[in-house]
Every structure is written in C-alpha cells, then in structure tokens.
Design a protein around this nucleic acid. Sequence first.
DNA 1: GGAATAGTGTCTGTGAGACAGTATAGG
DNA 2: CCTATACTGTCTCACAGACACTATTCC
Lengths: 246, 246
Amino acid sequence: MATEKVSSVYDPMAYPPAAVTVDVVLLTIREGVLSVLLVERGEEPFAGAWALPGGFVRPDEDLPDAALREAAEETGLAQLPRHLEQLATYGSPDRDPRMRVVSTAYVGLMANLEEPQAGTDARDARWWPVDDAGGDDGPTLAFDHGRILADGVERARSKLEYTALGTAFVAEPFTISDLRRVYEAVWGVVLEPANFRRKVIGTPGLVLPTGRTFSTGVGRPAELYRRGTAQLLQPAMLRPEQGDRR
Amino acid sequence: MATEKVSSVYDPMAYPPAAVTVDVVLLTIREGVLSVLLVERGEEPFAGAWALPGGFVRPDEDLPDAALREAAEETGLAQLPRHLEQLATYGSPDRDPRMRVVSTAYVGLMANLEEPQAGTDARDARWWPVDDAGGDDGPTLAFDHGRILADGVERARSKLEYTALGTAFVAEPFTISDLRRVYEAVWGVVLEPANFRRKVIGTPGLVLPTGRTFSTGVGRPAELYRRGTAQLLQPAMLRPEQGDRR
DNA sequence: GGAATAGTGTCTGTGAGACAGTATAGG
DNA sequence: CCTATACTGTCTCACAGACACTATTCC
C-alpha cells in the first residue's frame, strides 16, 4: 500500500483528506432491453440530473458492503444483486466540483424482479435503458457517471463472453431462449438459436435441466433449466464483431 | 459518484476521512523470470518486510499520475513503464493497522532496462521473481500486498491472451523468440516455437519487420521486429490450461 | 559434417457459424 | 392444414496444436 512517504506516515492529515465513496452500476434486462438503475438528484450540483446509486463508505465498512448498502438504501430494492464485482476507481481531482472524491464503482447484475422505489431520501429511482442514458430522450447523467456506466456496460458485455454470468440476469427456472435473449440484449445482436443452444447445453454445469417445460402459448414448449455451478465458459462464447453500440 | 446521503453532502468531514493511496505492481522479465519491483520497509508496521511501491495521492493529482510518480520516486527508475493500467482498489477497514487506507493498485509493464535504486527515502529497492514473493526463500510482503501482487500477475497473464501487451516486456528491436520467451515466462509454460511464430506474424500490426537480423552466435540469425500498432489479438492466444502457478 | 537456433509445411481435431430439417404446440 | 417456436443434423471454414522438415549460422 502505501504510506511510505517519509514523515507523512505519522501525519496522514498533512494530506487533505479525500472522500471515499462507492457507486453501483446495477444492470438488469427489462422487456428485452439492458437497463440501469438511476436515482434522480434533488440537490446541487447536478440537481435534476440522474446518478448511479452510491454514497460514502462508512468508517468500518468494506467497499463491497458499502456498494450493496447504498444500492438497497437508495432504490428500495429488497432483492440483492445476483452478482457484484468491482469495476474501477474514479479519482480525477475535478470529478466532483465540491471536493476531492475518490469513488470505487461496482457492477451488479440481477434479474428483473421488482420495481425500484424512491430511497430513504425520497428522490425518484427507476430503471433506464442503457442506450438512452445520456442521450437526447433519456436522462442526463451527473458527474462522470456516463463514463462509469459505459465502463460497467462494457464489463458486463465482456464478462458474458467467458463466464456464466449471463444466468445472473434470468429468474429460475428459465428456458434456453430466455438466456439467449439475455445475450442478445446485452450485446445488442441477434444470435443463431441453434448454435446458442448447442453451446449452452454443451458447457458442463452451465445449466441444469429440470425436466419440466413451459409454453408461451404458441410454438413448441421449451424445456426449463436452473443455473448450474459452472463459473467459466471454456471455450468462450465470443460476441459477433460489431455489437451495435448505440 | 456519490455524495447523496442527505445532509452529509454538506458535511463530508462527518465521515472520518480515509487515506487514499496508490500501489504499483511493476512487472518485468529478468533472465527469463517474471519479476516484480519491491521496496524494503524501514518503519513499522512491517519494518523489514517488502512492499509494492506506493504512497499518498496528492490533492490535485490524478490517480495514474500518482502511480507513476511513486514508482519513480521510490525506485529511482528513469524509465517509465511501457504500459500502466488500473488493477483494483483495496479498502478493507483493517488492511493497514494504523488507519483506514483505501489503495488503488496499478499494474505496470516494462522491459528490463535498468536496475532500481533506493528511493528518496533511502530504503532498498530491487526486482524479485514473482514466484519467490511470499515464499520461504523470498521476501515477506507487507500489508495485503501478497494479494495485490497475485491479482496483478493474474491480470498480466490474462492480458497477454487477448492484447498486444506482451510486446511491452521487450526492448526494440526484438526477435520472435524474445517475444515467445516473454509469454513463456509470464505464463510459466513452454510454447511451440512454430505455432507461436505463425500466430504473431499472422496478427496484422502486432509486430513490424525491420529487415535486419540478429545472431546470438549459435544457430541461424533471427529476424528483428519492432512493436506494431495493434492493440488486440483476435482471435486471442489462449494460454495452455495449466500454467504452473506456483 | 554436427549442433543449435530460426523458420516453413502440413495434417488433424475442435468448435463456431450457417442453414436445412424435424418436433410439438395452438389456431 | 398453417404458423410459430423449440430443437437436431450436418456441412464448412478457421484455427490451434503437433510435429516433420528446411534454412542458416558457428564450430
């Protein structure tokens, strides 16, 4: 770590302290669209803009715990993200106009099970399609949250390639087509159902058959699966070259 | 970022400030062995143990700048790392016994061009084989630097698979065999020279021929190359399954 | 020539993509 | 029957790995 720096070891306050915060890029898929949870800011700076849920890390709190706590507090979600991982830390001196704020961002993935509610401080909270965020018809993002969101989405996209995290976006039980639509939504592409199925079924431990089937009312009923224990896809399932980034 | 949290917005000092530091996992290859730059601690805690170079982030300093500055100051290296990227942030409340320290780690890659010197505060600095660090015949690592080092090495290993970063470890001009020995050192495996060469030459823009050759005195002289402009390997060059992690 | 290292040719197996064909449901 | 969705069969191409072979140097 740190802390060498000569005499400063015994006088850390000689360095103006920075605020340490966490922000969470919480992703889900709603109606086939990759969406992110944002909260509306009620105060300056960026009053009226939308922001990633986040806040100060408490004195004896670990960073992932802070991320989970802030996401829950500010959004009213009862469900925990199925997956949470550290994304990156953003610490430009001027990223918050008020003071030096160093923020560690996390990416959370969850199935779309519930609607967010305004958090403890009563601001609005809702899901936004990630492709709208920062656009003309979508929310304006506060601070450098546009950059953080873009990094988080790219992390999710790349993680789907070589891990089993696609299953974090679906509720059990699910069909292979459900899972395929996850990949299509996150990557913004259309996949061959036949090849996708072969890949998923052929990866040991990725999905477990339940023996049950489910019919949407039209077409042949699909077999239902649960998440398996596999963590990695080997070999990876690479996204087609040009995912239609907005 | 952050900063919501009600009244705390206007009273950030209500949260005991954390020290924000950077640490650098600076990697190179010395005599065919992947090695990391460590500095010896002269003070408690962990006096006599070895640590990653690092230190406090200055008030108006960006995080990558702080990482570069600390690496240079503490090691006396004149050469900048050829590549520097953020690794992760470590913020367990008890990772430093003295106070809350949140440290953002960077990974730097460089060709082995010079020896480190003791830094501005006169402690020792040297390269250590990464497989020795934390072992019986190697240095004891301070704080959670063993974990950070392991994460940094894994980052380097995986980045070699799908980026052109292997070339960051060699000085120009270099031979294909030089580059192959980089991969063998980082991954801890032996690669087929024929297949490696085909992969490297067949990746557009990875290496540029110089037209010159170089002889070690025995065997056919090898053609010399410079780094190209390619950033990604596509398709990736996957490491053989069992890199001999120590 | 022999040894050593650099570089080429070529075969084989795996797996992704394309797409035709079959299965099972509701109109 | 038709349509729609789920699932299977199969062909082809790209490419990684294995390994035999050729090239060029020093002794």
